[in-house]
Design a protein around this nucleic acid. Structure first.
Lengths: 212, 212
DNA sequence: ATTTTGTTGTGCAAACTTTCACATGTCATT
DNA sequence: AATGACATGTGAAAGTTTGCACAACAAAAT
């Protein structure tokens, strides 16, 4: 069987696939050809059974007795996640964060190209940040629409995030990665993911107890 | 009842508390005094029942018929998460990312102070980035140990991340926020959280299908 | 006073997720 | 050829998480 996508696969499973892909990339880099659910599990801190069950949702990618061909599995997972192509991404906000994102070289080899960097600060507009020219927020709608861009990253202060989100959705953006520390209100067919380092830190401090 | 911490609370519950705290901060900013599980739920995209159940793990923070006093609930959650104090944090890597992190002003009001910025590049050592002096990686152990620093953020290339992690753990770090796109191997009593924007993007592209 | 509306905290049921355990298959070695 | 070591894929069991529904309570309106 090969690449079954029908009947609803749990979102929690989808969320783990990028981690598998990341581990597989690492193995490839190490010059390996074949791996097993046990090895992947050990590296990711996940049980081997879970990895096998996750992958089985999409058909049989492995070979009993042998394991998984790394290149083959990588291709299949990229196909499932639709990252066997290049998605153009708009970054909103050319401050420290937007600038750091733009300089990060790790996007292209994993399916994404930062294509536009927007800012309200007209003194920045037209200047170069990394490889990117900064565009004016006035041109947001036109550029996003014309290029059918569906993915955006929000790297501006929390207070402006909802307004910008509304504008993005209006012109067809359907996936938003939000770095602003605020929950966004979006329609059902738009997906938002959040990156807030403080949320992770606060989660961890719970366990920094000396007692018990 | 007030602040029950005994018998194991699910980690998934702990992980939501920072989100509640973030929503409560927003409400405070809007000048509100009281809120309800329904309002919080609406804002966070979580059911009201779940919020009530989560909070009930720590005792009764609300008042039947009335709701939750925002200031009171905020204090209690900060207490539970131990962020009613200031944690000193070391940032490893003074590149674009480490630099952006250091410039971000949102840490202190939520319980964290970036206190040291380390880099191997000796030409950066001693210079100022934002409010911070850059320290040499040679002094890592001494500084972390002397200051009993328990939290670090890793903002260096994947290939060096495991080695640095080992060094950090050796001198007492117990919470690591890893920005490098690689899984870290750590002992049971050390907690790692990951920030990898590409993982989020790849998760979302799965749903960017036109068909079905 | 009584009614109405709105809220929390919680026992229980439902839904979801993970793990177990094993039939089935592969391959290297004897 | 037969054996042993090691994998996958999966049905069933176990474990975890979420949602329902309601008693108990609060406050405002009638």
């Amino acid at each position: 069987m090969s690449l079954k996508l029908s009947n609803q696969i749990p979102d929690i499973v989808i969320g783990r696939l990028p981690l598998y892909l990341r581990a597989l990339a690492r193995l490839t880099q190490e010059g390996r050809d074949v791996t097993s659910s046990h090895e992947l599990g050990r590296r990711l801190g996940i049980s081997s059974a879970q990895i096998r069950k996750d992958l089985s949702h999409f058909g049989g990618f492995g070979k009993q007795g042998t394991g998984y061909q790394i290149e083959f599995l990588t291709d299949k997972l990229k196909q499932v996640l639709q990252v066997n192509r290049e998605w153009k991404v708009a970054v909103i906000g050319a401050g420290n964060l937007g600038s750091a994102i733009s300089h990060y070289g790790g996007f292209t080899e994993r399916g994404f190209r930062i294509s536009w960097l927007f800012d309200t600060d007209e003194s920045k507009v037209g200047t170069q940040i990394g490889e990117f020219q900064v565009f004016s927020m006035h041109d947001l709608e036109e550029i996003i629409t014309e290029n059918k861009c569906q993915i955006a990253m929000i790297a501006i202060p929390a207070e402006y995030a909802q307004d910008v989100t509304n504008r993005l959705i209006e012109v067809g953006v359907r996936s938003i990665l939000n770095y602003a520390p605020i929950n966004l209100d979006v329609p059902e067919d738009v997906m938002v993911q959040y990156i807030d380092p403080v949320v992770h830190l606060q989660h961890m401090t719970y366990y920094l107890r000396d007692d018990e």
